[in-house]
C-alpha cells in the first residue's frame, strides 16, 4: 500500500496495522526516516509532491521490490507539505517469508525513494531556503542495486 500523507503519521500504529493477521508471513522489517534539525540549520522542510504521478512512480518501485525480494506485501507512507524537525517523513515496511529479503527490500526501497521518488525538498533555515537534491552518496547507494 502506498500512501501520501499531508499530516503527521504515527509509525507505530502503521506498523501494528501492517503486521496484524499475518499468520504465515514470518518477517516484517521497517524503516522510519525522520526530519533532522541539522543543528538548527533546518527549521522546517517543505516537501512538494506531484499528486497522481508521485504515487504511480512509488508504486512502480514497490512492484520492483516485490518481484526482486519475493515480498508478500509492502507499505510505504510518505509525507508531503510542511514538516517539522523530529517528524517522520517516510516509513517503509516489507513483509516476506524470511528476514533477509525483508531487510534488503527496505534498504532497496529507501535508496530508490531518496533519489528517484517524485518529491522536491526545500530546507528552510535561518539563512534562507535551499532545494535539496540527491547527494553523491545517494547516487552511490542506488547504484548498488544495478
Amino acid at each position: 500500500m502506498i500512501r501520501l500523507a499531508a499530516e503527521p503519521f504515527e509509525p507505530g500504529a502503521e506498523l501494528a496495522r501492517f503486521c496484524a493477521g499475518r499468520t504465515e508471513t514470518g518477517a516484517v522489517a521497517s524503516f522510519v526516516g525522520i526530519a533532522r534539525a541539522e543543528g538548527g540549520q533546518a527549521t522546517a522542510l517543505e516537501l512538494q509532491a506531484y499528486p497522481g504521478f508521485t504515487e504511480i512512480e512509488i508504486g512502480r518501485m514497490a512492484d520492483a521490490a516485490t518481484q526482486r525480494f519475493c515480498l508478500a506485501d509492502v507499505l510505504i507512507v510518505h509525507r508531503h507539505g510542511a514538516i517539522a524537525p523530529g517528524e517522520p517523513i517516510v516509513m517503509v515496511a516489507c513483509a516476506s517469508a524470511h528476514r533477509r529479503e525483508a531487510f534488503q527490500a527496505c534498504d532497496y526501497l529507501m535508496d530508490y525513494l531518496k533519489s528517484r521518488a517524485p518529491f522536491w525538498k526545500k530546507e528552510l533555515g535561518p539563512d534562507g531556503a535551499r532545494w535539496v537534491e540527491p547527494t553523491a552518496r545517494d547516487l552511490e547507494d542506488i547504484a548498488r542495486w544495478d
Partner: peptide, 10 residues
Amino acid sequence: VAFLPPMSGG
C-alpha cells in the same frame, strides 16, 4: 506537461 528537476524523497 510537467518539468521535473532532480527528485529527492525520504
